[in-house]
Simulated assay, not measured.
Amino acid sequence: MLNLKALQRNKTVRYGIPMLLLIVGGSFGLREFTAIRYEAQKHRRKLDPSLEAKVNVERQSVILEEEYEKMKQMNLVEWKNIRGPRPWEDSREYQEQQRSRQKEKD
């Protein structure tokens, strides 16, 4: 009885052992939860076999020279960078300004 009361008063037994159990138990728990998370991501990434075959064919058929030829055919001299509206601006008003500017140039 005397030893039990002495153990209850001991700070290591009272605070240290529960803290160690929390840390060690938490690491095992987190390992299980993260394993579930990564398994779920693997299942979401799986594609239908027919769709996956199409994606792989498209990836393999891209040739750098063909893409270069497509870029040469594009008219980049007359290309214009148009800024979109800011979040605080009214998008309809901004679109009307862009349209009126375009009409003035034409």
Rank of each mutant, 00 (worst) to 15 (best):
E96L: 03
N3H: 10
Q60W: 07
L2G: 08
N10M: 02
K46E: 15
V62R: 04
M19N: 12
K46L: 14
I36Y: 11
P85T: 00
K72T: 02
R31Y: 15
Q8Y: 07
K72Q: 11
R92A: 13
M19G: 09
Q98M: 11
K46D: 07
N3W: 10
Q97L: 06
N75P: 01
N3R: 13
E58S: 07
P87A: 02
R86K: 12
R59Y: 05
R83L: 12
S91P: 13
K105T: 06
I17W: 05
P85R: 00
R92N: 12
Q95F: 13
M19I: 10
L2Q: 15
E39V: 10
M19T: 11
M1H: 08
K70D: 03
R92C: 03
R86G: 00
V57G: 02
L64S: 08
E93R: 00
R14L: 09
Y94V: 06
T12M: 10
K80M: 03
N56Y: 01
L64K: 12
P87T: 00
W79Q: 10
V57E: 13
L20R: 09
S100E: 15
D48L: 11
L76Y: 05
W88H: 05
A53D: 04
M1D: 02
S91W: 07
W79K: 09
S61T: 10
L76Q: 05
N81A: 06
R31I: 09
N3C: 02
G84P: 01
A53W: 00
R9T: 12
K5F: 09
P18R: 11
L22S: 11
P85C: 01
E96Y: 02
S91K: 08
A35I: 05
M71E: 07
Q73T: 03
E104N: 09
G16T: 12
F28Q: 06
D90S: 00
N56M: 08
I36V: 13
Y38M: 11
Q8T: 08
E52Y: 07
L22M: 12
Y94I: 06
E32Q: 11
Y68P: 00
K70R: 08
N10H: 14
E58R: 11
I36N: 12
R44V: 14
V57Q: 11
Q60S: 12
Q60I: 06
K42D: 14
E104L: 05
Q102S: 12
K54G: 04
K5D: 14
M74L: 14
A53T: 03
D90Q: 00
Q102R: 13
D106M: 08
S100D: 15
V62S: 02
E69N: 05
L76V: 10
K54P: 02
L47D: 11
R14E: 12
R101K: 14
M19F: 12
W88F: 03
E65N: 06
N56L: 09
S27N: 10
R99S: 03
Y68T: 02
V55L: 09
E89F: 00
R99E: 10
R45G: 14
G25T: 05
V24C: 06
Y94A: 08
R99T: 01
Q98K: 06
E66T: 04
N3V: 10
Q41E: 15
P85H: 03
G84I: 02
W79G: 03
P87C: 01
L4C: 08
R83Y: 04
R14I: 02
Q41H: 13
I63E: 14
R101L: 12
R86T: 01
I23G: 06
M1R: 03
S91Y: 07
